Amino acid sequence: PVKEWILHARIREDYYKYEPRLDAFEVAAKESPFPLCYNGDIFSVADYESICQRFPQVTSVMLGRGLMANPALIRQIKGGTPCTKEEFHSFHNRISHGYEEIMSGDRNVLFKMKELWAYWESLFIGEEKRIKKIKKANSLAEYHAAVSILLEQADFHRI
């Protein structure tokens, strides 16, 4: 028996480049005999509310990349406060140390961490030079030093 249908509103060829196909999702939602979970591009409270308003039959949502970009997103959806710089720092360190524990070599960890800065750089407006140093780091020591400087000296944009 099917308990829930998780529907990602994209096709494989879209990857994450394009807007979710909400018209196609709407057709599927109207026809679904199962509880429906929406998946795709929820990065803010406004995104979440928009999906819930447009698709009231949706019983749950997946936040994936939205949580990577904003670790306080669930709390904000529930009416709580935005992420602080300290929370982001802790979040970053948990991810980094987790990768360091399970992956071998600086190169693999660096690749994963640098990939995440595509989501995080918007938290540090006007800090392109410091973020570029993070993305150009060639060792974990260099990476962590660049992140530390950014977190110590930069303003944090609360989403």
Rank of each mutant, 00 (worst) to 15 (best):
P1H: 09
V2I: 15
V2F: 15
E4F: 14
W5S: 08
I6T: 10
L7V: 07
L7Y: 04
L7M: 05
H8K: 08
H8D: 01
A9M: 05
R10P: 02
R10N: 03
I11M: 12
E13W: 10
Y15W: 15
E19L: 00
F25H: 02
F25T: 02
F25V: 08
V27R: 15
A28W: 12
K30T: 05
S32T: 13
S32M: 11
S32C: 14
P33S: 15
F34S: 03
Y38K: 07
Y38C: 00
N39H: 11
F43D: 09
F43E: 00
S44N: 07
V45K: 04
Y48E: 00
E49H: 12
C52N: 06
V58M: 04
R65T: 01
A69W: 02
N70Q: 14
P71I: 07
A72H: 07
A72S: 15
L73Q: 04
Q76V: 03
K78A: 10
G79I: 07
T81V: 11
T84L: 11
F91P: 05
S96E: 09
S96A: 14
H97L: 00
Y99G: 03
E101A: 06
M103T: 01
G105P: 07
G105Y: 02
D106N: 13
D106P: 04
D106R: 01
F111G: 11
F111Y: 15
K112T: 02
E115W: 10
L116G: 08
W117Q: 07
A118I: 13
A118Q: 11
W120F: 12
S122V: 08
F124L: 07
I125Q: 14
E128H: 09
K129G: 07
R130C: 06
I131S: 07
I131D: 03
K132V: 13
K133S: 01
I134P: 00
K135Q: 14
K135I: 00
K136Y: 02
K136T: 12
N138A: 14
N138K: 15
S139M: 09
Y143R: 08
H144W: 04
A145W: 03
A146E: 09
A146T: 09
A146D: 08
V147H: 02
S148F: 13
Q153C: 09
Q153M: 03
F156G: 08
H157Y: 14
I159E: 11
